[in-house]
Amino acid sequence: MTDSSALDPEDHKIVTLARATRARNGVPEGAAVRDGNGRTYAAGTVALDSLRLSALRTAVAMAVASGATTLEAAAVVTEAGAVPDEDRAAVRDLGGPATPVLVAGPDGTVRETVPAG
């Protein structure tokens, strides 16, 4: 586990955004990504009858739809033990295999940082 105070301030910001989105929307996951220009995009789990997306894939889609061409980092707040391969693939598609994905619990404590690749 990583002490939140030890995180880079920009990484702390995306974890905080992901946590707030999860809590505000009452969804299983919240996620946030930071693009190459420092802009952030936060999203929650999408669970419609016709569309199901994880919070992380939704945040990546929001970044792409807003014109982002690269990612610096991603964060997901979840009770799940791991980030699914398809979520990491979405981050990797935009940010590359070394893009860090911070995985935090609902309390905001980062449990691990995994590369997208």
Score class of each variant (00 low, 15 high):
residue 53 L to S: 03
residue 53 L to E: 01
residue 53 L to W: 00
residue 53 L to R: 04
residue 53 L to P: 00
residue 53 L to N: 02
residue 54 S to W: 00
residue 54 S to H: 08
residue 54 S to P: 00
residue 54 S to D: 01
residue 54 S to Q: 03
residue 54 S to A: 03
residue 54 S to F: 02
residue 55 A to G: 06
residue 55 A to W: 03
residue 55 A to P: 07
residue 55 A to Q: 11
residue 56 L to V: 04
residue 56 L to A: 09
residue 56 L to F: 06
residue 56 L to S: 06
residue 57 R to S: 09
residue 57 R to P: 00
residue 57 R to F: 00
residue 57 R to Y: 00
residue 57 R to D: 04
residue 58 T to N: 14
residue 58 T to G: 09
residue 58 T to C: 12
residue 58 T to I: 01
residue 58 T to D: 14
residue 59 A to F: 10
residue 59 A to I: 02
residue 59 A to C: 07
residue 60 V to F: 12
residue 60 V to D: 05
residue 60 V to Y: 09
residue 60 V to G: 12
residue 61 A to N: 15
residue 61 A to D: 15
residue 61 A to I: 08
residue 61 A to H: 15
residue 62 M to T: 06
residue 62 M to Q: 15
residue 62 M to E: 13
residue 63 A to H: 10
residue 63 A to N: 10
residue 63 A to Q: 11
residue 63 A to P: 13
residue 63 A to S: 12
residue 64 V to S: 02
residue 64 V to P: 06
residue 64 V to G: 02
residue 64 V to D: 04
residue 65 A to V: 00
residue 65 A to N: 03
residue 65 A to W: 02
residue 66 S to R: 06
residue 66 S to C: 02
residue 66 S to W: 03
residue 67 G to M: 05
residue 67 G to Y: 07
residue 67 G to S: 08
residue 68 A to G: 13
residue 68 A to T: 11
residue 68 A to K: 05
residue 68 A to R: 07
residue 68 A to I: 05
residue 68 A to W: 01
residue 69 T to D: 15
residue 69 T to A: 15
residue 69 T to G: 15
residue 70 T to R: 15
residue 70 T to N: 12
residue 70 T to K: 15
residue 70 T to M: 13
residue 70 T to S: 15
residue 71 L to V: 10
residue 71 L to Q: 11
residue 72 E to F: 06
residue 72 E to V: 11
residue 73 A to H: 02
residue 73 A to F: 01
residue 73 A to L: 02
residue 74 A to R: 00
residue 74 A to H: 03
residue 74 A to I: 00
residue 74 A to S: 03
residue 74 A to E: 02
residue 75 A to T: 05
residue 75 A to N: 10
residue 75 A to H: 04
residue 75 A to I: 12
residue 76 V to R: 04
residue 76 V to K: 06
residue 76 V to E: 11
residue 77 V to C: 09
residue 77 V to W: 02
residue 77 V to E: 01
residue 78 T to P: 15
residue 78 T to H: 12
residue 78 T to S: 15
residue 78 T to E: 14
residue 79 E to T: 11
residue 79 E to Y: 07
residue 79 E to K: 13
residue 79 E to M: 07
residue 80 A to H: 12
residue 81 G to V: 04
residue 81 G to P: 13
residue 81 G to A: 12
residue 81 G to I: 00
residue 81 G to W: 06
residue 81 G to F: 04
residue 82 A to V: 08
residue 82 A to Y: 14
residue 82 A to H: 13
residue 83 V to Y: 08
residue 83 V to E: 01
residue 83 V to N: 04
residue 84 P to Y: 07
residue 84 P to I: 00
residue 84 P to C: 10
residue 84 P to N: 11
residue 84 P to A: 13
residue 84 P to V: 03
residue 84 P to H: 09
residue 85 D to L: 10
residue 85 D to S: 06
residue 85 D to A: 12
residue 85 D to V: 03
residue 85 D to W: 05
